[in-house]
């Protein structure tokens, strides 16, 4: 039997008395890209934190390559999973190369400093994500999309087989959105990294992910190929929005578009007006 690269079994988690995750199971194969989608506050970020070992679940277990994630030392964990946070803090006065070199920490002893090889790896990763031109720029001076790329390079410098992205396209314009996701595709092709991404935009998620896992009410409502998950009835249950599914002109991936409620409201108002008028005439 083939062991999944990452597997989560019946994860339950609550903040205080309010449950966030009520039994989540997921298997991710090596080299796969899985998108976790769902409404705001569905618990996507919490799930990513648990899958990366930043939070311990109340119940259930996460394994990577068949070994449990809980109980790994922070250094070992950082060599197994790398995380790109949603809006990473940009420390003052630190250059992009120095940020990327921080990703080498799990391969260095506490008292050890980064060496030539670490710089080579950092520069190589910056090349892959197309941010090598920012080497000596301070991260505080970079735009949101540029900074995001630097932090992806930092995560890659950890050389972990699993990469997690928390809303990689949030707060980015359409140009940066597609460039970040194209870079993610490059990373998978060149490094064979397994990617798990929490995503907001359903159409982008459908375009770039092998599989989607749709969260609602603390569980997965549907897991499968984008075609299987992004159906009007499933989306209505998860988001409470009526949508119609368009097809991407290039590769036919599903693009959900919302159907406005406005016309119906307008009809109702008009009907009300007519009723009032008839009453007035009587």
């Amino acid at each position: 039997m083939m062991v999944s690269r990452l597997s989560a079994t019946d994860i339950k988690f609550s903040y205080g008395s309010s449950p966030v995750l009520r039994g989540i199971s997921l298997n991710v194969d090596a080299g796969e890209m899985v998108g976790i989608v769902g409404s705001n506050g569905a618990g996507k970020t919490t799930l990513l934190k648990i899958l990366s070992g930043g939070l311990s679940p109340d119940f259930g277990a996460v394994t990577i390559n068949g070994g449990p994630l809980v109980g790994l030392k922070p250094r070992e964990r950082a060599r197994a999973v790398a995380v790109v946070p949603q809006s990473p803090a940009a420390p003052e006065g630190i250059s992009a190369l120095e940020i990327v070199l921080m990703g080498r920490n799990p391969h260095l002893g506490v008292l050890q400093w980064e060496g030539r090889r670490d710089v080579e790896i950092a520069l190589r990763m910056m090349e892959i994500v197309d941010c090598v031109q920012f080497v000596d720029r301070h991260v505080t001076s970079l735009s949101g999309g540029e900074r995001q790329r630097v932090f992806i390079a930092k995560a890659l410098a950890q050389e972990a087989p699993v990469l997690m992205l928390d809303e990689p396209t949030a707060h980015l314009d359409i140009g940066y959105q597609s460039s970040i996701l194209d870079i993610t595709a490059d990373i998978r092709r060149e490094l064979g990294v397994t990617v798990i991404a929490a995503m907001h935009d359903l159409a982008l998620a459908a375009r770039y992910c092998d599989r989607l896992a749709l969260m609602a009410g603390g569980t997965f409502l549907a897991v499968g190929r984008p075609d299987e998950v992004l159906k009007p009835d499933i989306i209505f249950t998860a988001f409470g929005a009526e949508v119609s599914i368009l097809r991407h002109p290039v590769d036919g991936t599903p693009i959900p578009v919302p159907l406005s409620h406005r016309p119906q409201v307008a009809q109702l108002i008009q009907a009300g007006e007519e009723i009032r008028r008839t009453h007035a005439n009587e």
């Binding site: 990577i64 390559n65 068949g66 070994g67 449990p68 790994l72 250094r75 070992e76 964990r77 060599r79 197994a80 799990p106 030539r116 090889r117 710089v119 080579e120 790896i121 520069l123 190589r124 990763m125 090349e127 090598v132 050389e159 972990a160 087989p161 490094l191 064979g192």
Partner: peptide, 23 residues
């Protein structure tokens, strides 16, 4: 599971190309 089993580095380093970058 020890962390070293998790994944071998697949990055081709020392190709001379990275050398040039470091310089």
């Amino acid at each position: 599971m020890s962390a070293s089993e998790i994944g071998p580095s697949r990055i081709p380093i020392g190709s001379g190309h990275a050398d040039a970058l470091v310089k």
